[in-house]
Each structure stands twice: as structure tokens, then as C-alpha cells.
Design a binder for these strands. Structure first.
Lengths: 109, 109
DNA sequence: TCTTTTTATCGTAATATTACAATATAATGG
DNA sequence: CCATTATATTGTAATATTACGATAAAAAGA
């Protein structure tokens, strides 16, 4: 089949899965890291840094944008990308809550 | 092409991506939630709860196991699954550090 | 041993993802 | 307007993922 049965899961489960999927690629993690380390918006320098074709990076940026993790503003000829603080914070809290919800049980195998 | 260029990324980037990918599906999030909420190992009840075929769930469990997020112990006829506390904690810390590394920059678009 | 129960694996179809070349688009500078 | 620069989109090939039916495997009980 190949298509996820979205309808049988909760809104929250689907939302979290979509966000995680957007982050779940080394190139996209690398992109996020670069934006974060630059501590400003990144305009164009991404293609030289990563060893991927321009089209591929554009595609990855699009996915990050679709997930709401980054935002791009047109700055003359180039586009400047930065983290979308609201979504970033939201996902951080959501994930943190998820990880914290696990308490090592007393009676387990 | 269809295959990720793992070799051009760092060890850390690849590791994090693999873990996130393992979590990045609503069914696998649902499975993790169930194990966590049960607060003990889950033996078999997963198929009835989720609306997916037994083979599909077994496949998802395998991926979570491969990523080291859960562990399964054979308990008579059935297999009991629980969170792998070490990996869980590791991923939690890793992700938390990643999210915290972002500081909203002063000069941005 | 035979049956039952539970989980894993195999085979397969449908769809998604990843990557890149080629090309399009959009803004700037001459 | 034309060339340049930066990014997006399109088309396409290779591979991965998702899902399920069918079947295998493994342990328990009759």
C-alpha cells in the first residue's frame, strides 16, 4: 500500500509524527544546525556548506518550511531562512512532555 | 536516486536522524504511548488497540526495536515490550540539547 | 504429538522519499 | 532590456516505506 492510515490516529499523534518526519533526515538536521549556529538568518550559504545539489537542498528547505520549523523571507535576490520560534518552542515542549511521560516501571521484564 | 547520502553527514547527525525516523510515524508514536501509559511491559494487547493488521504492527515494533527505543522479552507464548530506558534518556537529552541550542537572534529578518 | 495462541517473516502492491539535471522564475545591476 | 545571481520547480530514476494476506515459527496446554 504505502500510505499511512492517518485517520485511525489522534490529531496529536499525527501532528507530532509530521514534525518528527520533517526533522528525521541528516541533511535537514544539518540545515537546522547551520541556521542555529549562525545565530542569524542564513541567506544562500547552505549549498556550499552541505555536499548536496542546489535542487536537493531547496527541496529539504521546503519540507522544513512546510512543517513550520523554519521561515524564509525574500531579501533581494536571495532568501533568508531562520528558525520559526513558535513552532520550535511548541515542538520542544511537546517532545519534552512525551519523553518525560515515561517513568521506569517497577514491575517489568 | 532515493538513498540518503549518509557519508557526507556527521555521526551525530545520522544517529539523531535515525532515531527521529523511528519515532516519525503515528502508529509508532501510538505504540510508544501505549507502552508508557501501561507503565509496565505490554504483552500482545497492541494489535487490538490500534486499528492495524498484526503484520503491520510487528513491522513497526521491529523498527522501534532496531532503533533501540524499545526492547522485547519473550514471555512464554507472547513477547513483552517495554521502553529501553538508556536509549530513551539518551535521545531525550540529545534532542533537548538540540532544541535548547537555538537562541532567538537579535538581528534577523 | 497435535492443536492453539502469539508473534515474526515473506511476498507483494501502492505510495513516498531522495537526489539530481534541466529549466523556470524573480530580483538586481548594468 | 539584457545579463547575472539566487532560489524554486519539474521531470525522472532509484530506493524506501507502509500495509496486508499468507505462511512460518515457537511455546503452552490437551
Amino acid at each position: 500500500m504505502g500510505l499511512t492510515k492517518t485517520e485511525i490516529f489522534t490529531e496529536g499523534q499525527n501532528r507530532l509524527a509530521v514534525m518528527l518526519k520533517a526533522m528525521a533526515h541528516p541533511a535537514r538536521i544539518a540545515i537546522l544546525e547551520q541556521i542555529i549556529n549562525a545565530n542569524t538568518c542564513i541567506c544562500g550559504d547552505l549549498v556550499e556548506e552541505l555536499g548536496l545539489a542546489q535542487a536537493t537542498i531547496s527541496q529539504h528547505l521546503k519540507e522544513l518550511k512546510n512543517a513550520g520549523l523554519i521561515q524564509g523571507t525574500i531579501e533581494g535576490v536571495s532568501v533568508c531562512y531562520c528558525i520559526e520560534p513558535k513552532t520550535w518552542e511548541l515542538l520542544h515542549k511537546n517532545l519534552d512532555g512525551f519523553f518525560r511521560s515515561y517513568k521506569e516501571p517497577a514491575n517489568c521484564c
